[in-house]
Design a protein around this nucleic acid. Structure first.
Length: 557
RNA sequence: UGGCUUAUGGUGUAAUGGUAACACAGCGGUUUUUGGUGCCGUUAUUCAAGGUUCGAGUCCUUGUAAGCCAACCA
């Protein structure tokens, strides 16, 4: 009999509180329907992951569903490549949408809404240039002035708008504006533009339209058409809420409600699609899925798991305060998950040859090594132990400091999963570099059948030279040198870290030849790694997901 | 000379008028065939000034600071 898992009384965030209240009071018949509304003009990043976890999460929590709706009202920047990547990323994160929809599905309805507004005397065709429109808008501290085209008759407006649709005017010649209030303290209420002419091919509607609705005339209405109950977006849309509500009110359509939360900011990176696109276009990174990118696809290629990202999003919470979250917190959740699931492997990055003087040349002793101490069912693998092995150069010191639990003349260590060895001698080249160690192994100290009675403090990773597999390791550092490059003075590009990618060669144990693209590995005493898709038959390439914590290195600084 | 939003440890997030808590980071210890993991402990917080109240992080007033708003972007 299993004890009923006690529902942890988790605190609700402010959006969940609103929804809980709405469900309790029977608003919308207690129905909850949210939506995730990306514009298909770039790849999803960790900031979107926060929004996805929120939108899908609250719906799940309150028995509702979530639509995926592509906000594709600007054909110039949008593309199906992005649609596909966005769908893949959401699925990978572990969420399923109720319906896949597009704002462009509603172009006919939206057009009719516009005509309705015109006939109500609430919209007009503007012929001023964009510069003139901007000038007439005033400033935040100064009211705008009415356009000379503001008081045309509904008939004239309707006629002109239909001609706009029929491609009788050039781009920029005319726009449709809502007739609200040029003196509103909210700049967005000063007769916002709602339709513009763009003679561009749309990724879904092709060449059917030459006029496209603006965000403010598409988003709220799309929510309403889908009967979205809670439309959750980021803080920069707060001033848009008044416009959102105004259109729904004047159109007399289903009253979806907008709620805003603070977007995620992470240290040492940037989080806008525009900036990320610039990194891609200027070749600072290899693409949207470069492992240094904060994109979902980049993090996936880097080896981050969906669970780690979800746990992170859970932990950072949802509020209305501007925030800058330490990327170290994300890395904590990555390590936390990987520690439980990654197979341990041995890889030597800076080899130092060790000759086991009392182990016969040509002989191979097979060692059975545990794959994951955190997982009893993880099994074992075989590692060959031979006369000559590699260890890390930094694991030997001729004159060790106190508490150096590694190799030094006369000192003993355990080779992980194999034998205890003792350093008897070392060889230097003409330049004084240590090039080889002469060690003896303790025959009855083999892992799992140790009868030596010896206690050694240090445990080293190692690899048999004859069996070692040369591999390439790609080790990543933060993309930017400034904590918050976007808020720093000058261009964010000035703060880019030129040394964010470090490629090194290394020697791996033979089991790594069987590495797969979705396998997760911990290179013992080094970090977590995944096979990169750039690997081929001749060359295995691994990305470092994140390094292991290293208290020894920290203490010696 | 505008409007809107927000202010809680180093970073985030809770506390819904009644003992300021949780996570990460930091620091110390312990376990360990990874100087990893685990476990234990610990440092540190209510923007300011008034007011209401038996009692204020929470309510009121006045400040201060930060963010957003003047794209035919979303």
């Amino acid at each position: 009999m299993e004890a009923a898992p006690k529902e942890k009384e988790k605190n609700l965030n402010f959006i969940e509180e609103i929804i809980e209240e709405d469900v309790k009071t029977g608003k919308n018949n207690s129905r909850v329907l949210t939506r995730f509304p990306p514009e298909p003009n770039g790849y999803l990043h960790i900031g979107h992951a926060k929004s996805i976890c929120l939108n899908f999460g609250v719906a799940q929590r309150f028995g509702g569903q979530t639509n995926l709706r592509f906000d594709d009202t600007n054909p110039v920047t949008e593309d199906t490549e992005y649609v596909e990547s966005i769908k893949e990323d959401i699925k990978w994160l572990g969420f399923n949408w109720a319906e896949e929809l597009y704002a462009s599905d509603y172009f006919d309805t939206l057009y009719n809404y516009a005509e309705l507004l015109i006939s109500k005397g609430l919209a007009y065709v503007e012929e001023s240039s964009s510069e003139e429109i901007a000038k007439m808008k005033g400033t935040p501290t100064q009211a705008g002035v009415d356009s000379p085209f503001r008081n045309r008759s509904a008939e004239e407006n309707l006629n002109l708008f239909r001609k706009m649709r029929n491609s009788e005017f050039d781009e920029g010649a005319m726009v449709l504006r809502a007739k609200i209030d040029m003196a509103s303290p909210n700049m967005l209420m000063r007769d916002p533009l709602i339709y513009r002419i763009k003679k561009a091919h749309h990724h879904r509607t092709g060449d059917k339209w030459c006029i496209y609705p603006m965000y403010d005339f598409a988003h709220g209405q799309s929510d309403s058409i889908e009967n979205i109950t809670h439309s959750v977006c980021t803080l920069e849309f707060v001033p848009h809420r008044e416009v959102y509500d105004w259109f729904i009110d004047k159109l007399e359509i289903f009253p979806s409600k907008q709620y805003e939360f603070a977007r995620l900011n992470l240290t040492y990176t940037v989080m806008s699609k525009r900036k990320l696109l610039q990194l891609v276009n200027d070749n600072y990174v290899s693409g949207w899925d470069d492992p240094r990118m904060p994109t979902i696809s980049g993090m996936r290629r880097r080896g981050y798991t969906a669970k780690a990202i979800r746990d992170f999003c859970d932990r950072i919470g949802v509020a209305k305060r501007e925030n800058l979250i330490d990327v170290g917190l994300l890395e904590f959740f990555v390590r936390d998950h990987l520690n439980k699931i990654a197979d341990r492997m041995m890889v030597v990055t800076d080899p130092l040859k060790v000759t086991i003087t009392n182990f016969p040349e040509g002989k191979t002793e097979i060692c059975s090594v545990e794959n994951n101490p955190e997982n009893p069912e993880g099994g074992h693998r075989e590692m060959p132990f031979t006369h000559e092995i590699y260890i890390e150069s930094e694991d030997f010191m001729e004159e060790p400091p106190k508490k150096f639990f590694r190799l030094a003349p006369g000192q003993m260590v355990r080779l992980k999963g194999a034998f205890i060895i003792q350093c008897d001698d070392f060889v230097k080249d003409e330049a004084g570099n240590i090039v080889e160690l002469k060690c003896s192994y303790i025959e009855n100290s083999k892992s799992g059948q140790d009868e030596s009675g010896l206690k050694v403090k240090g445990v080293l990773h190692w690899v048999s030279i004859a069996d070692a597999v040369p591999v390439e390791l790609r080790i990543y550092d933060r993309l930017f040198k400034a904590e918050n490059p976007a808020s720093e003075e000058g261009e964010f590009m000035e703060y880019i870290n030129e040394n964010s990618l470090n490629i090194i060669s290394a020697f791996a144990e033979p089991a790594l030849k069987a590495a797969t693209l979705d396998g997760k590995y911990q290179f013992i005493r080094k970090g977590y790694y995944v096979l990169d898709k750039d690997s081929n038959g001749n060359q295995l390439i691994f990305n470092q997901t994140v390094g292991l914590k290293d208290n020894w290195a920290k203490a010696s600084n």
